[in-house]
Amino acid sequence: MITKKVSKKDIRKLLGTWNQECNVIVPSRVDGVVGMAAWDNQDISFLDWYRNTVIPPKSCFLPKSEVMMSFKKNENGYNLEVPTNEHWQVIFGVRPCDARANAIIDHVFAVTYDDYYYISKRRNTLLVGLSCTNPYDSCFCTSSNIDPTESEYVDLMFTDIGDDFVIEDFTGGGKALLNMSNTLKKVTKADIDKIKEVKAASVSKIKKTVDTENADRKLGSLFNDTDYWERISAKCISCGICTFLCPTCFCFDINDEMIRKQGARYRGWDSCSFRSYTRMPMENPREEKWRRVRQRVCHKFEFFPMNLGINACVGCGRCIRSCPVNWDITQVIAGLPAEAGIKSGK
């Protein structure tokens, strides 16, 4: 519900209020690379330059590497210690595409077994969305039925209408954040008109589109077409960029380290693009590159829809922007033959 607005010059004050109660995370640029990082209680220049992060906000819940437990050997055996994540955090500036992405991987980490590390961070996090008014040319969120100015997966949504941000609140947590502040103003009729304008303009700025309708069915019928996948994957160099920067890629690896009698178990991102990912001592079910490319495409657009009824690509465009060879997922989806002649299954 749209209730309040905040003047841009009061954002520092607003974040400052929140920062007293919990850790405020904002877009930050270090050596030219944009990610989400702890706010320094001062700098709000990101409001001028921020479009989206290179490293997706999933890294706030599933960091590129984290300690799962540390262990120490003593005379009675091993003593294990698990880090706690009890502090609250507010992530300011989450784009609607990434908010949807978080909701998608929430499912992965909560189904059947609760993943302590992910969920302990995620449940203590309030997401403050920021309408996307200056998307990249590689953005195609509207093709995944995402409105760049709307999200049902955030606690608060901020939309830039010029001098002010109009705020929509969606959850109790969001309302609580608003109640903490005394810098908010009432919205006017003119603001409501303005926000409609901004929303319409933002949607029309998304120029890249791809028809994802029936992509799952088309992929199903193409699944065993080796020639097709070999052709599609030819220029892929099997690096991990598209998967690591994807806000819905969640695969991880677990590794131990130990020096003398102390050590830790870590988990970190892993990628189905890597040949070593599925390698077993005697064989590797995805030794060939085309199988790995197929896995990535089908996992997003075929397997996820089968399990969740939604494709796992949110159209953030990171995989296209950062790909060393301009391997463009939208081209592949758009290029799927309408009526493939091959039957699905083996």
């Binding site: 799962m68 437990m69 055996g77 091993y78 294990l80 698990v82 706690t84 909701a103 998608i104 929430d106 499912h107 909560a110 189904v111 077994y113 609760d114 993943d115 302590y116 590390y117 969920i119 302990s120 995620r122 449940r123 997966y153 959850t171 947590g173 178990r265 969740l308 009824g309 939604i310």
Partner: peptide, 25 residues
């Protein structure tokens, strides 16, 4: 669309039931 409401996990998540922490044998 089935998206898990993570907030519902607040009560259920128990640190002592962290499935990744092994039992000692």
């Amino acid at each position: 669309m089935i998206i898990t409401q993570i907030k519902q996990r607040r009560k259920e998540l128990d640190r002592d039931k962290n499935v990744y922490v092994p039992h000692m044998v």
